[in-house]
Nucleic acid binder design. Sequence first.
RNA 1: GGCCUCAUCGUCUAACGGUUAGGACAGCAGGUUCUCAUCCUGCAAAUCGGGGUUCGAUUCCCCGUGGGGCUGCCA
Length: 493
Amino acid sequence: MRTRFPPSPTGFLHVGSLRTALMNHLLSKQTKGSFLMRIEDTDRERLVPGAVENMLKGLAWAGIIPDEGVMLDKNGEVIQKGTHGPYFQSERLDLYRKYADELVAKGHAYHCFCTPERLAEMRKDQEARKQAPMYDRLCLKLSKAEVEAKLGSGDATVSERHVIRMKVPHEKTITFNDDIRGDMRFQGHTVDDQVLLKGDGFPTYHLAHVVDDHLMETDLVIRGEEWLSSLPKHLLLFEWLGWTPPRYAHVPLLLSKDRKKLSKRDGDVAVEEYITKGYLPEVMVNFLALLGWNPGTTQELFTMEELIEQFSLERVQKAGAIFDPEKLDWLQGQWMRKIPVKEFAARILPTVAEKFPAANSDHDFTKKAALIQERITFFHEAPEMLKWFYEEPHVSVELLANEKQKVTAAQLPEIFDALTKILTDVSEKEWTAEGIKTAVMGNLGSFKQGQLLWPLRAALTGLPYSPGAFEVAEALGREKAMERLKAAVAIIS
RNA sequence: GGCCUCAUCGUCUAACGGUUAGGACAGCAGGUUCUCAUCCUGCAAAUCGGGGUUCGAUUCCCCGUGGGGCUGCCA
């Protein structure tokens, strides 16, 4: 099956766009078809330089690489590949013109010379009369001779700055079966005479979509629900041009907490933002796939491969879904913990080494990485979480004493006395988390666990939060741990 | 306003017309090794309202209500 993703290069890659791109990608892969990328650059005023490259990079980050159309080559340059091009709509103007003319010739479209000012006024009137703003078909009343005269008038503002509108049959009922929503019907008289070709010679989305998706042989169009209202226009165009429309699946919109269409105002809607924050691509893909879709089982974690296998439009929700950052973060944690520990260590090593060069020559780095893997959310937190190992801790009485653990400053000498005694008895060979645990737990004396463990851990790390006391002691090694213990004793006495 | 569309815990969602309406996130309460985190256990939490159809509606139909989208020579 051929599916496609046709963004307009007017900015960053929106998470909602990534979601529809993902669905298109999943189904093309599931059916061993192809996924193509087309650029809808028909609005020249909103073009943003670099947007195409940015979007392709965002898709690639998520693991979505187009099979055809606009893509990135090995050097990161934007190229076009495929037999159905060009894939930039701005390079297909002659095509749109040709079909627009055909529609005029067939009587399904007409020239309109109304100025933007007149249209604005017309709409204002209609709204004042509580009517639906629709083109009043003033130019449809023009005779053929009048149209010819205007077109050949030599007055460029009239002959060139005019548009071609579709002539929607008011009496017609347009019906369709959407892959997600089922049967739908629209009454012709509620559909506006949409502009197909603009005054600047560029097509509007509607014409371009129909022409391109026919010529590019798209089998299935998965797009946002915001296009549902325009569907009858597209259906009419396919019919008039004598083409079979593709299958359509209108997916529900992504909503913000206030249930409005997710937009810039709602914070992070740019995929780029999530990349910078350190979210894993697997997490974004997993999260987006689960928004509005479910596998029918209780499985929550999905790889791209599993999604390709299991995704189906039948199980896509009809109602909009709120983008919940908390669930995103939960998924991030799940995926961080799924990374094999060796790989995890390899991924955090560069950032840790940047701050603590010693990490590069640390033979036990993987062991340390393992200690923080279950409590980390983003890779960039790693240096801070491991600093206790690479630099001497700043220990204070305030840190060592802890009310909740029933440790008072006055008790500290006694506590450290006990700790020193216990740990001195632990041999180099027994110096493992397990061995130290056995020693400490077996010699608590009159202390509660927390009364020994909190000061121990705090003395060793200088931190209120860190991996457990025994693990830290093992990681540090007997010599260093005893040194830090001694340093702490010096501070409290 | 008009048109289109949607409706189960706070959120994402499950449930051949028959279930004590299930799971997950978040929340709360416990537990494991002191903290943080993980993990485990438990608790709380929903079928928008009204009519039908039916022996029986979350499920089918109608009407409300509420939400969303569109209503551009934007996409």
